[in-house]
């Protein structure tokens, strides 16, 4: 076979075009990526253009050993050169601390498409305003952070997936005409690209949380799939009243499927479903899965 004879047979992999090497590096765990630096002199800095940097549970548990994570994240981000597309920080026991902002400031706001920040312990983390300068986010996942946009924030207009868990939506700089229930009627920017939204652990007994959910849903005119995992214990009448008072939204015309999980059937949840049914004119499928009933309760009646 004579194909690809231009390249020498030996050490084929070193001679691959850089974009292919970057693709390969992007599919390797971070430790293996850094380890390529020792293969040969030509490989010394190849890893620094790896498009993905992921510090995950696996990395923390398997590879870190006795080494400290913080200086390592800093060192890797300082050395990185190529266009970084993805940065994920989801190690166990990550506490809110100023280092996180320092790392975020090292991320390139003109290339990064995918950001995951999972602050798993301690206080809700106040994110650096640098976050709002990123122009290319397609996937954004934040856990236990405060989302407080800077004045003049125009939105992430390429966003396709947004996942917020235990995130405080700060209305201070969003709009002035809103704050009756803790969230604006709509976000000041519409999340045009967003097609899938998953609201998990949703407390239907908290009016702030319910109003945030409605605010988000209204701000996604092209939303197609909505999933809500409820997490409700108490019945709070004011939440049902609040939901009843909401006008149906005209911006849900693309919504096709709704999944509601761990549904307990309280009035607030029922009102929420009514709200969706009234608003989503193109809805094709709604699946409601109830909270599993605890059987012993049933037996104790006899």
């Amino acid at each position: 076979m004579k194909g690809n004879t231009v390249r020498s047979e030996s050490d084929f992999i070193t001679n691959l075009p850089n974009n292919i090497i970057d693709n390969i590096l992007g599919c390797l765990p971070l430790r293996d990526v850094v380890r390529t630096s020792i293969l040969s002199r030509e490989w010394r800095y190849k890893w620094t253009s790896c498009p993905d940097i992921v510090f995950d549970f696996w990395f923390d548990q398997m590879f870190l050993g006795g080494h400290k994570l913080e200086p390592l994240i800093y060192q890797i981000l300082k050395l990185h050169k190529g266009p970084l597309l993805k940065f994920a920080l989801q190690v166990p026991d990550l506490k809110s601390n100023p280092d996180i902002d320092q790392w975020v400031r090292l991320l390139p706001n003109n290339t990064l498409q995918d950001l995951t920040l999972h602050v798993s312990r301690g206080e809700t983390h106040n994110l650096t305003s640098h976050l709002f300068t990123f122009q290319h986010f397609r996937n954004l996942k934040l856990y236990n952070c405060v989302f407080d946009p800077i004045p003049g924030f125009k939105g992430f207009n390429k966003l396709v997936n947004l996942e917020l868990q235990r995130v405080a939506l700060c209305a201070r700089n969003l709009r002035e005409d809103l704050v009756e229930h803790g969230a604006p009627e709509k976000l000041p920017v519409s999340l045009n690209m967003l097609k899938t939204l998953h609201l998990s652990d949703m407390y239907f007994e908290k009016i702030e949380e319910t109003s945030c959910a409605i605010c988000f849903i209204r701000s996604c005119p092209n939303l197609q799939r909505l999933k809500i995992t409820a997490f409700t214990f108490d019945v709070v009448d004011s939440v049902a009243d609040f939901l009843r008072s909401q006008r149906s939204s005209e911006s849900l015309t693309q919504l096709k499927t709704v999944k509601m999980q761990l549904f307990s059937g309280i009035e607030a949840e029922m009102e929420f479903v009514k709200y969706l049914l009234a608003s989503a004119t193109a809805l094709e499928e709604m699946t409601i899965t109830p909270t599993p009933v605890a059987l012993p309760m049933e037996e104790s009646r006899y």
């Binding site: 050490d11 693709n23 765990p29 293969l39």
Partner: peptide, 25 residues
């Protein structure tokens, strides 16, 4: 590329050099 990465994953540096004829200089 992903399949190639799967082959290289969790391997010793010596294994990668040997398998892909990378000369350690």
């Amino acid at each position: 590329a992903k399949k190639m990465a799967d082959i290289m994953k969790n391997k010793l540096v010596e294994w990668v050099r040997r398998e892909f004829d990378i000369q350690n200089d």
